Each structure stands twice: as structure tokens, then as C-alpha cells.
Amino acid sequence: MKDKPLIWRSVVILSAAALLIASIAILCTVLTPTIVRTKNGNVSILTWNLLAPMWVDRQAIRSRGIINMNLLNDEVRLRMVADRILAQAPDILHLQEVEEETFANLTYQLSSIYSPVVFAPNVNNYWIEYLRENQTYTKNGVATFFKKKKFSLLSHRTFQTSSQGNVALLAVLRWHRCFGVNSDLILLNCHLETGATQNKAATRIKQGNTIMEEIENEISRNNEHSSVAIIAGDLNTQSPYPGYRNFKKKMLLDAAEEVSKAPIPTYYNELPVAISHNNVTEWSDWVSIDHVFIRSVDKASGKIRVSSVNVPAIDSEDTSQESYINKLKRIFARDAKGSMPVKHVADKDQKRYMASAEDIAHEELKESKINRVLRLGSDHLPVIATLQIV
């Protein structure tokens, strides 16, 4: 009986030791910065040029008799943009032609789901030469947002892609631990030089080179952790043009081509331009200038693959190539001389759309649909790529 206190003391000591060991194990698990994570994760990235308000020539629009367009009301237009983003709910947003007020507005409207990285405006009054006399220059640039329930922001920085003042935004995101995905995301959001001259094309090549240098530098800095790089934005180039070919030379893969899609039209041009697919070049008045690129080395290593690339449906679920083009022409119909819809063309498009809008019962909804079709919140269509990351 005298040994019982000794036995109980031993039991207490052993229990305390076990509790201490378990506590240390838990603490180490919490504090350890690295963990083996091998699950796959799907990430969807939307890139969209939002049409900076300063480019909207209200006087020209009114002179053509089009006075009931959402282009004339920036707040209404941004609500349309925010609603479309929230309806699609992509994981990452790459937005171009964002003004400071636009950034603040969207940050507020999207705050329940998204966190902003930063607003990165161009410098040196970039693109001011394209303004008309009655327009006022406002700083605009790019902005990146991400789902705060899915990622945390590790770092970001902005840099000039050209001496003229074009700025790109690089951000590094890490998946939250619960998703079990190993690779960090190195995201590059950019809006490259516009224009069809040889000089402009040469500028886009230089911008592409600068972008790839920055990405390679970031990968080197992040070499202790697996990462994949994604470039998404308004590149103002398409196959077979030099800027696009330069990205391919840099061992980048166009996400749309990865899923065997023909170039997706995202912008309606005033004049026909060449567009190439499967070694066939045609002339078209629609262009595919908004892209998502991945690195071929990331694909080869099995760290990333493209699941799908789509433009969100405009007025139906039909995502065929012919449907895209027809919808794009209905939305962005233009005359040969100007850059805005002419009234008689707009009227014709309205009647054409109304004839197919059988599901709309009320006149006020029809009017709303007409405005939405004339301008879908921007003069560009959004592109969404879904990627699988390891």
C-alpha cells in the first residue's frame, strides 16, 4: 500500500510529459513554415479591359443621337462590371484601364469576396496623345484582385515596361493551407502599347522582354518554394503579329490554344486586321488581343495545365466561334470612319436583338437589355481561363 503514492506520482509525471510532448508537436505544426502539399487546385483568372472613363467621348456619342447609353454614366457602367464579375466569381481579377476612382469603386463593390493588390497607374501621362481636344487626361493603369478566402498576398511590385511610362503589376499569391496546393502564383497584369505601326510593334516586343525578365527574377527570388507564372492582360497583339510571336519565342503558351480553341474575339476593330490560326491567316474586323499565357516549362513539369478558356456568355450559353463574332458585332457595331456606334447601325442592331429577345416580357427590361448589348460595361469582352495548379 505504501507504493501507491509513488505509482500515482509516476502516472501524473508520465501524463504531464505526454501532454508536454503533444503540445510541442502541435506548436511545431503551427509554427513550421513549410509543409508537404500535393493536392491539385483549380484557379480561374479573369482579364478585362474596363474602358477608362476618360476615353468615353460623350460629345461624339450625343452628336450621333445615342443619349441613352450606359457609357454616359460611369457609376451605372461600373455596377454592370461589378455584377458581371460577381456573377462569374473568378478567383483572380486582372483589370486594365482602371482609374483611381474606378479602383476605389470596385474595391468597395467587391469587398465581400475580393482583396485588392494595388492600383498601378501608368506614369508620364502615358497615352495622352490619343485624347481628343474635349477630353481630359486622367491617370489610369492596371489593378489586380484576389479571393481573400483562397489566397494570401506574399508580395507585389510595379515596374515600367517602357520609357514612355507604361506600368505592369507583378503579384505573388500563396494558397491558404487548407487547399493543400504547393505552388505559389506569380501573376503579371499588363496593358501593352497600342497601335499598328512598326514602331509600336517594336515597343510591344521590348515590353514583352522586360516582363519576362521580371518574371524570371521573381522565380529566382522565390526558388525555395515551388511557383508557376501567369501573364494575363490586354496585350494589344495577336497571332501572327510580332508582339505575339515574341511571347511564343519566350516559351509562353496561349491558354486558348492549349484547349484547342480558335482565337477568341474580344474587341471590335474599325479596320480589318490579319488573324492567324492553325497556319491559316484571314482578315477580320474583330481581334483577339486579351490573353492569358502560361510558361511551357511549368506545363512540362506538371505544375499547371489549362482546363478551359471562355468569354462569359453575352445573351445565351452558346460559346461557338460564330456566336462570339455575331454577338461582338451586335455589341460593338461601328461605322468605318469613327470609333463609336452610329445611330442607324445601333438602331438596326437593337431591332435585330429585340427580335431574338423572346424571354423578355416588359418594355423596360427590353430597354435595359438593349443598353447592355450596345455596351457590355466596356468596349472589350472579359476572358476567363481556368487552370489546374499542383
Rank of each mutant, 00 (worst) to 15 (best):
L95H: 02
S276H: 06
L188W: 09
Q96E: 14
P53Q: 03
L328M: 13
R352T: 12
I205C: 02
A202C: 06
Q207E: 15
T102Y: 08
T237Y: 01
I24N: 00
E367G: 09
N217M: 10
Q59G: 04
R305T: 14
P265Q: 05
F332S: 06
F151Q: 01
V383L: 12
A336E: 13
S227Y: 01
A336M: 12
N124M: 06
Q350M: 11
A18L: 15
I314Q: 10
V172P: 01
S323Y: 15
S115T: 11
V259C: 03
D290Q: 03
N310Q: 14
H176S: 09
K303G: 04
H362R: 13
E257T: 07
W127M: 15
I67D: 13
Q109E: 13
A274S: 13
M80A: 02
A274I: 01
I304E: 03
Y108V: 14
K148Y: 11
D74T: 15
V273G: 07
E214K: 13
D347Q: 08
K149F: 09
Q198S: 14
N124C: 05
F247R: 03
E100D: 14
T102A: 03
R77N: 03
Y130L: 13
D3L: 14
G233Y: 12
L86V: 06
L86N: 09
G377C: 04
T38V: 11
M69Y: 05
I215C: 09
S288I: 00
A313Y: 12
I275F: 01
Q350V: 08
L328F: 07
Q207H: 06
G377A: 03
N222P: 04
V306I: 12
A171N: 06
A355S: 13
K248R: 15
K329G: 10
P5H: 05
Y137R: 05
N222D: 09
V12P: 01
L154W: 02
V228K: 00
